[in-house]
Design a protein around this nucleic acid. Sequence first.
DNA 1: CGATTGACGTACG
DNA 2: TCGTACGCCAATC
Length: 118
Amino acid sequence: MKKDTEKKLDSFFEQVYAVARLIPKGRVTSYGAIAKYLGTTRSSRMVGWAMNGAHNVKPKIPAHRVVNRIGVLTGKHHFPGPKNMEELLRKEGVKVKKDQVVNFKELFWDPSLELDFD
DNA sequence: CGATTGACGTACG
DNA sequence: TCGTACGCCAATC
């Protein structure tokens, strides 16, 4: 058993997708948080790049729950509609003010904490 | 095949 | 504290 547990680890993108799917509803996280969780803190750009194909994988990735470290919807332009992202967040209870998540610090969901922490 | 860009973040001055 | 520079890796031009 195990042996498959570690496996070769899917592509870096897959790891990002996996974490993104784990984001609880009504919560948000940052690219850097995911990157750090994966151990690629400096490769935070790759996280965003990975999300570039998020809409292309199944199940769909809640990329709208992923924002930059300051809580700004930097990737809203990549959504089907620029308003789609903040609207989705609002539907989940996340208030967005001018492309910025309100109470971002409170809504922030850190995988390295929630997942790593038993 | 080489240079530039990109949904970011950290380091340094 | 704020501004600028660099790094990361992949995709696109």
